[in-house]
């Protein structure tokens, strides 16, 4: 038997909203430690890895590990039927999981709706992502990162990110001309969510597709801060951390001339 009840249902709505453009079908791997998902976009240029800890649900019950093969478009349609204040419960019979039950209860509990989503068999390759000691780790307000991606997209569909000890610089070059945004670390200790920090092993400069980065910023509502991790000739990691877990986006760089 699998049952996971989340009082902040809105969080699940936002999470699914932040991956729906990137991934169509995916397996939700459920175990006693929680729910995780890993999937690449169709072009295999980006990968999303999502993890929700069992402690974030109450109750959480997963008698044995199993996978829920889900079409995310269909799941998103059903999630639209949940109110932002609703408590959301996911239930499945872990032996013959051919459908996922979703329960939406409003706060005063006089309105309860129940949906069943047909599950699919999805055989997806699972990539092993080694723990990496990145050349540069940058923390910044997630809204700031979203704005930089949106602004520089008017100039080009690629952005070069340069990180040095005391600056992260985003540069775009295109037909109309060029644009760049430079951020310096802040020391505002009174407003931690506004802070910008740079942890530098060595300077790094990489180029990425802004189309994908803009897509990743759908995770902005999940967290005040976003973490960018860069290493030479490695995919960029963009992480939005929540109390219950995290959503990580990986993007392969553009390399060579």
């Amino acid at each position: 038997m699998f049952e996971a009840r989340l009082t902040q249902g809105a969080l699940l709505k936002r999470l699914l909203d932040s991956v729906k453009e990137l991934v169509t079908d995916a397996n939700f791997d459920c175990s006693e430690t929680g729910i995780s998902l890993q999937a690449m976009d169709n072009s295999h240029v980006a990968l999303v890895s999502l993890s929700l800890r069992a402690e974030g649900f109450n109750p959480y019950r997963c008698d044995r590990g199993f996978s829920l093969g889900v079409n995310l478009n269909s799941l998103n349609k059903i999630m639209k039927c949940a109110g932002n204040e609703d408590v959301i419960t996911l239930k499945a019979d872990d032996s013959s999981a051919d459908s996922l039950c979703l329960l939406f209860e409003n706060s005063s509990n006089e309105r309860v709706s129940e949906y069943e989503l047909k599950l699919m068999d999805i055989d997806q390759e699972h990539l092993s992502i080694p723990e990496t000691d990145y050349d540069a780790t940058v923390m910044m307000p997630s809204a700031e990162f979203q704005r930089i991606c949106r602004d520089l997209m008017v100039v080009s569909e690629s952005v070069t990110i340069d990180v040095s000890k005391d600056e992260i610089k985003f540069t775009a070059e295109g037909e109309l001309g060029t644009g760049n945004v430079k951020l310096k670390p802040t020391s505002t200790i009174d407003k931690p969510e506004e802070s910008i920090t740079i942890e530098l092993g060595q300077t790094v400069s990489l180029q990425f597709s802004l189309k994908y980065l803009s897509n990743f910023t759908r995770g902005t509502p999940l967290s005040d801060q976003v973490m960018l991790c860069l290493s030479d000739n490695m995919p960029l990691l963009v992480e939005y951390k929540m109390d219950i877990g995290y959503i990580r986006y990986y993007l392969a760089p553009k390399v060579g001339d």
């Binding site: 240029v45 390759e125 092993s128 392969a252 553009k254 390399v255 001339d257």
Partner: peptide
């Protein structure tokens, strides 16, 4: 122009 790489150029299957 630089070439867009793939995630699978860096991370392999488990």
């Amino acid at each position: 122009l630089k070439k867009q790489h793939k995630i699978t150029d860096f991370y392999s299957e488990e």
